[in-house]
Design a protein around this nucleic acid. Structure first.
Length: 593
DNA sequence: CCACGAACTA
């Protein structure tokens, strides 16, 4: 009884008072302790047991796997077999859960073979565990074979299959299974909806959310985490706020997962004050929570504060992982903290034994390059134990643009073009570097090369939300219903900017030379059209939040600083790599990006 | 007396 009520220590006292202890009483106490997470105590008693049943062994195997000690769990399972105890389906499920945690495909296959070899019948639950482990290890075909061969398919089996297909990115296959299901539960809906969100098929995700509601389900925390991550990636602050309000009035528990998702939404919408309030409300902050706040501060130009939070995190004895260090290095990169970056990069290896991945090298190349240490950046690339990818060379190329180094730029560009000959951004970057240095012959050679290879420049676009409606703007696109008013506003903007002393940077204007664009009378980048629309349609007290698919250019950056000052408006632009908070003629990035 | 499913970070 005590075990059942979770009073393990009371149970332990009763147990110690029993004179004639049989296997069942031993097992009960061991299982109770293991389930309560008192693994050392459980193990201690387990080792002292005069005899052990399958259930005793399984209690320990599952205790370890539930405590996320997958290695110990599997070790114990192997000991159980060598002790001559035959596992049942329950034991197999327990050990497979440990395999799933490790994402160890080889081990999972071995366990599966053992099931056949030992003649253990595949129960419904065991089939689910097998499907789940294969799906988690990325072997969707094996998962499907188990699924197809299991006679009666219970709901979790379908859900595990759907989840597996979503993880593989095969959203159509997932949907086809979803449609075949006769009964669906909330998990089915959540899995499918999250799958759509992760494939950026947001219309479909929304449609599924509507279906979820009309099927009579109440959104739970998984639903909300999915929706919040969609808002985060779409910069949909209004919808995100509505979800936040819903969470506050609903009975959904505010736990670390939901808190982190909310925090991430606010950070990705450029609202660090709100993000910070959420952050302070989260009780059991884990490494992800800290990583989200560090990366959020980093992206929003508060690099120093981000690093302070990294120190706080370590004071709380939370061990940073590889992703946390990417946040730290991003903070250094966006705030030009070269020395701090060097220190953290070294500590990551020496203190935490984390092997730098390609992303860490990418950050370092970015930091060194933009700090003007181009030679050192090249040296780092040459000494990398991993083959540098296009992102690494792209960082170097970008640094060459900032620091006007044509020689290294050519080297970097050649590497990228060898790796990704259809990457339009490289041609554009190189073109700009040549154009900026006045080397028009080489510039036009690049232009011709692009034409020969049929590489099309990605159109730049920006969007903003007004009254819950998303408005997308592409330079030169006149399809917006209010285009005439917008163009009037653009004229007013141009006049006011001129009065404020704005001169377009002509070399940067050539950045986006696209013949089609050039023909347009209205030659401006999309973010400025979006800002014009924001000035027209948003209340004067509201900040203007813009999302842009490419990096903001120097000319627009200067112009927006002036617009923010002239109109006395806060303007936030989220470009493809970071945030720019414009206010009173200044930008949070201090012109470093 | 033992088991099972989904989520947030670059």
């Amino acid at each position: 009884m005590y075990v059942e009520f979770g009073c393990v220590q009371d149970a332990r006292r009763v147990f110690d008072g029993i004179e004639m202890k049989d296997v069942v009483s031993w097992t009960t106490i061991v299982a109770g302790l293991a389930r309560a997470g008192c693994l050392d105590e459980a193990r201690n008693l387990f080792d002292k047991m005069p005899e052990r049943s399958v259930i005793s062994w399984t209690s320990m195997v599952s205790g370890y796997s539930q405590a996320r000690c997958a290695v110990e769990s599997i070790e114990l399972f192997k000991k159980m077999i060598s002790a001559g105890v035959f596992p049942d389906t329950v034991a197999m499920v327990a050990v497979l859960s440990a395999c799933a945690q490790l994402r160890d495909l080889e081990l999972s296959k071995w366990v599966h073979q053992y099931v056949s070899y030992a003649g253990i019948g595949v129960s419904d639950n065991l089939a689910v565990a097998l499907i789940d482990v294969y799906a988690k290890c990325g072997d969707i075909n094996s998962a499907r074979r188990v699924f197809d061969s299991s006679g009666q398919k219970i709901l979790p089996a379908w859900n595990a299959m759907i989840d597996g297909y979503c993880k593989m990115g095969d959203i159509d296959m997932a949907r086809s299974l979803f449609d075949q299901m006769e009964v669906r539960d909330l998990i089915s809906f959540n899995s499918m909806m999250t799958g759509y969100i992760q494939c950026s098929q947001l219309k479909q995700a929304l449609q599924l959310f509507v279906e979820l509601r009309t099927s009579g389900f109440q959104p739970d925390k998984f639903t909300l985490v999915g929706l919040l991550s969609a808002c985060a990636n779409l910069n949909s602050l209004d919808q995100g706020k509505a979800l936040h309000a819903y969470i506050e009035v609903s009975s959904i528990a505010f736990d670390v997962f939901l808190g982190t998702a909310l925090l991430d939404m606010y950070a990705k919408c450029g609202k660090m004050d709100e993000a910070m309030m959420i952050f302070n409300r989260i009780h059991n902050k884990d490494v992800m929570t800290w990583t989200v706040i560090i990366s959020g501060l980093a992206m929003n130009g508060k690099g120093k504060l981000a690093l302070e939070h990294f120190d706080l995190m370590r004071k709380e004895s939370i061990r940073p992982n590889a992703v946390a260090y990417i946040g730290v290095l991003t903070a250094c990169s966006h705030s030009n903290l070269v020395e701090e970056a060097r220190k953290h990069f070294k500590e990551m290896i020496s203190l935490h034994n984390i092997e730098p991945e390609i992303e860490h090298y990418g950050c370092m190349v970015d930091i060194l390059g933009r700090g003007g240490l181009l030679q050192e950046a090249v040296k780092l690339i040459d000494g990398m134990p991993i083959e540098p990818n296009a992102v690494i060379w792209g960082s170097l190329l970008n640094a060459c643009r900032v620091h006007k180094n044509v020689d290294i730029a050519e080297k970097a560009a050649n590497h990228i073009l060898a790796l990704e000959p259809n990457e339009d951004a490289v041609y554009v970057q190189l073109y700009n570097i040549y154009a900026n240095s006045g080397n028009w012959a080489s510039a036009s050679k690049i232009r011709r090369l692009m034409e020969e290879r049929g590489v099309k420049k990605t159109a730049g676009y920006s969007y903003l939300t007004v009254a819950g409606q998303v408005h997308k703007f592409i330079a030169g696109d006149r399809s917006h219903p209010e285009i005439n008013e917008i163009e009037t506003m653009m004229d007013v903007m141009a006049k006011k900017l001129k009065l404020a002393g704005y001169l377009p940077i002509t070399s940067e204007v050539s950045v986006d030379v696209d013949e089609e664009e050039k023909e347009q009378a209205l030659f401006v980048h999309s973010e400025r059209i979006a800002i014009a629309y924001g000035l027209m349609r948003l209340g004067t007290s509201l900040p203007i939040h813009i999302m842009k698919n490419l990096r903001i250019c120097k000319d627009c950056h200067i112009a927006i600083k002036l617009i923010a000052k002239t109109w006395n408006r806060k303007i936030v632009v989220r470009d493809r790599s970071r945030f720019h908070h414009f206010s009173d003629g200044q930008c949070s990035c201090n012109d470093f990006w």
